[in-house]
């Protein structure tokens, strides 16, 4: 499974979701797969994307928000997982791209095993699952309720990336365009069922 497989599967299962992507393969892949769709692309602020997704999810409770995070990104902002566990927005799903490396800076290996799904399960307010194929990822996403009042702790999906390729365009996005496009899309989109 590569990063684009993951992003494509997310978009197939959650076509109306707003994605929050971290600097690295995540932002590149979301740009490619959604054709620069109205999502919250991080072009920097490494370590802040999960907290940003938490804030966005709580601001748009009728929309599904999926955070697509690099594993390096996740580790730098790991404390935010405890904040997610504390406030548990039911419209937030977290997908960590576990490629075991800081791909964008040259593929340096991440020294400790991630085990983020196990950590999410250890916290009372989040649930974790590991997936290693698009079939498993799709089955996991489809099994989750998406109605705004669905109960349940946010799901953290550790997606094992075995095929490491650079996914798409540059992640050095234009911040102004990111804000303008997402705001315009939020202003016009009726809450999907």
């Amino acid at each position: 499974m590569n990063v684009n497989d993951v992003t494509r599967t997310i978009m197939q299962c959650r076509p109306d979701a707003i994605l929050v992507s971290s600097l690295g393969t995540a932002t590149s892949s979301v740009r490619l797969v959604t054709s620069d769709g109205p999502h919250f692309y991080f072009g920097a602020a490494m370590g802040s994307a999960l907290a940003g997704a938490l804030g966005l999810a709580e601001a748009v409770p009728d929309r599904q928000v999926v955070a697509v995070l690099g594993d390096g990104e996740f580790l730098m902002g790991a404390s935010a997982l405890w904040s997610v566990a504390a406030y548990r927005p039911s419209n937030l799903t977290v997908v960590v791209l576990a490629d075991g490396a800081y791909s964008i800076t040259g593929g340096q290996p991440i020294p400790a095993p991630l085990h983020v799904a196990a950590v999410a399960n250890a916290l009372a307010g989040t649930r974790g699952v590991t997936v290693s194929s698009t079939t498993e990822l799709a089955a996991t996403l489809r099994a989750e309720p998406t109605s705004p009042d669905a109960p349940g702790a946010p799901l953290v999906i550790e997606a094992t990336i075995t095929e490491r390729t650079w996914p798409g365009p540059s992640p050095f996005i234009d911040p102004a365009a990111t804000v303008r496009n997402l705001r315009a899309s939020l202003a016009q989109a009726p809450a999907p069922a």
Binding site: G77, S79, L186
Partner: peptide, 26 residues
Amino acid sequence: IRLRNLAREEECVAYAAGQRIAEARP
């Protein structure tokens, strides 16, 4: 008013950024 005691100040700023991109007022 919703109170969010987050673990780090960096999270607070990023949380507020997520709110502001949706034009909420944190």
